[in-house]
Design a protein around this nucleic acid. Sequence first.
DNA 1: GCCCAGAATGAATATCTATTCATTGCGAAC
DNA 2: GTTCGCAATGAATAGATATTCATTCTGGGC
Lengths: 216, 216
Amino acid sequence: MVKQRRSQIDSSKRRQILPKEIRRKQLIRATMGRIAEVGLSQVTLSAVTQKAGLSQGIANLHFDSKDNLLVETLKFVTDEYNLGLQQILSGTGYLSAQAKLQALVQFQFSRSVTEETKMAVWFAFYGEAKSRPTYQSICADSDRRAALGMKTLMTAVSEELGHDIDTAFVTDGYIALIDGLWLSLLLSPRKLSRVKAKQVVFQYLKGVFPLWSDVR
Amino acid sequence: MVKQRRSQIDSSKRRQILPKEIRRKQLIRATMGRIAEVGLSQVTLSAVTQKAGLSQGIANLHFDSKDNLLVETLKFVTDEYNLGLQQILSGTGYLSAQAKLQALVQFQFSRSVTEETKMAVWFAFYGEAKSRPTYQSICADSDRRAALGMKTLMTAVSEELGHDIDTAFVTDGYIALIDGLWLSLLLSPRKLSRVKAKQVVFQYLKGVFPLWSDVR
DNA sequence: GCCCAGAATGAATATCTATTCATTGCGAAC
DNA sequence: GTTCGCAATGAATAGATATTCATTCTGGGC
């Protein structure tokens, strides 16, 4: 009997040692994928590690517990989103507040943000947040930061256009609208495309800012 | 030793035989409660039956499987909502389309609809819907019916006010706004009250229907 | 080429939980 | 009051699945 020799073809089976950070990201991505595939309540470590092409015990090795892996997955998604958001909100290269707000809309409905697996993760955790303090605080934290920056932006737009309106309501409405559209995008992408979603948002903005005009 | 005699005080422990329908509703309510308390992914039959004050095996007796109990719970919540919704949409006692739309808003943010446990159930299943065909179809069915009726109503309002606008966008925006506000209501009721949520909706309606005026 | 720290593995374990079913006892019918 | 069908019980079972850990193997250092 010939002893099995590992070839290049078989390289997927070859054990490899990689930096902790690479492995963590690899597992987080696999977790996101599984959440999108089977739902948060059906995710098992064995399914995750299998998807990552790694062994059973590795999730506990790098994350200590399943619960922690899930928390880190949520953090990963929210952190990435917040980073992009803050980049726009604190950006200084825009010609006007209106232009900045338009960029924000483009970002919020960009392919990267509305990627199916990310939406799935987002709402999976929202669905559990009420009853899980850890998720709750991660989401709330993210939301609070976002709301603050958006309020400032809305006020800037309002002033720029010479309006005199309650931007608190406008902001609450804007945020709710985005969340609702994301949910539609997740549940029935057939019915509502990203393009259509953006049109709905601009319709909202034209409504609350009568003098709004799309900048180039 | 005196043989334990069941007293009135002890009546909670007394075995009782009740109609199937009563038991089913009792279990569904307990399930809703547990979902709100611990999240869909952490709901166990033993926690549910305990909350219902019944024995371990009763859920399987009346629902065959845990999965089925969950499905029936989702159906219960959506059916109740749809009933109220259709009652308004097909109602004929309103003075105008505007008045009907106002009634709709009142309904959608009524205490009964926005009850914490119901919102929790709603979003718990939304979070899983993507990956579970059964949930998906229940939610999609409910959504489709709602969307159709609302589109008609929006068109009626638009005509009533003599506007010439694309009511498809208005409807999509309206639905998304409601969903987003519900999510806020669930996740941070401190920040957004039901009253404030309604004000946000009316602000939206004033925006898209320039001639809108609150009736009475 | 050899060594070895520690990354990775995966079989074994412990725990948790849905489901079953033999037994109990309620309450409607007579 | 007695009987009896079947609702209800809850202990036992079976099946998952998170976690552990003894063992294997990699790749950098010498």
